[in-house]
Simulated scan of single mutants.
Amino acid sequence: MKEISVQELKEKLDKGEDFQLIDVREDFEYEMSNLGGTLIPLGGILIEVEKIDKTKPVVVMCRSGKRSAAAIMQLEQHGFTNLANLKGGILAWAAEVDPTINVY
């Protein structure tokens, strides 16, 4: 599984690169802190699969990287080849990029 670091994600965001960010956490987690990605909780990832772009890079994130890895495994079984897991999730983002973001 391809992984991307929080520093690499920050570079993509800063450069305005064309990619999609999918957040697979729950609604309450997303409301507490998010990076502006599309919210599709893990439990509904295959139900809302049409929201995920197959034509450009997609970064999948969660709290620590475990749920996003599970989401990627499910999506790859449905033909996705353009996915990268955010290593360490929002916890790594808070630790390495933005310490002011709320974590739980």
Rank of each mutant, 00 (worst) to 15 (best):
M1V: 12
I4C: 05
I4T: 13
S5T: 15
S5G: 07
S5W: 07
E8A: 15
E8T: 13
L9C: 01
K10V: 07
E11S: 15
L13C: 08
K15L: 15
G16T: 10
G16K: 14
E17Q: 12
D18A: 15
D18V: 13
L21D: 01
L21V: 09
L21H: 04
I22H: 02
I22C: 01
I22D: 00
I22L: 14
D23Y: 04
R25Y: 04
R25G: 00
E29P: 01
E29F: 02
Y30D: 01
M32T: 13
M32Q: 11
S33I: 03
S33Y: 03
S33D: 08
S33K: 06
G36P: 07
G37F: 05
T38R: 10
T38N: 05
T38A: 01
I40C: 02
G43M: 07
G44I: 05
G44Q: 11
G44T: 15
G44V: 06
L46T: 10
V49R: 06
E50Q: 13
D53M: 08
D53F: 02
T55M: 04
T55A: 14
T55H: 13
P57R: 06
V58K: 03
V59T: 02
V60A: 02
V60L: 15
M61C: 10
R63V: 05
R63Q: 15
G65W: 07
R67V: 05
S68D: 11
S68Y: 05
A70S: 13
A70W: 04
A71I: 10
M73N: 14
Q74N: 11
Q77L: 12
G79L: 09
F80R: 13
T81C: 03
L83N: 00
L83E: 04
A84F: 03
N85Q: 07
G89P: 06
L91N: 13
A92K: 10
W93D: 01
A94N: 14
A95L: 14
V97C: 00
V97A: 00
P99Y: 11
T100N: 09
I101T: 01
I101M: 03
I101R: 02
N102E: 12
N102H: 15
V103R: 05
Y104L: 13
Y104F: 13
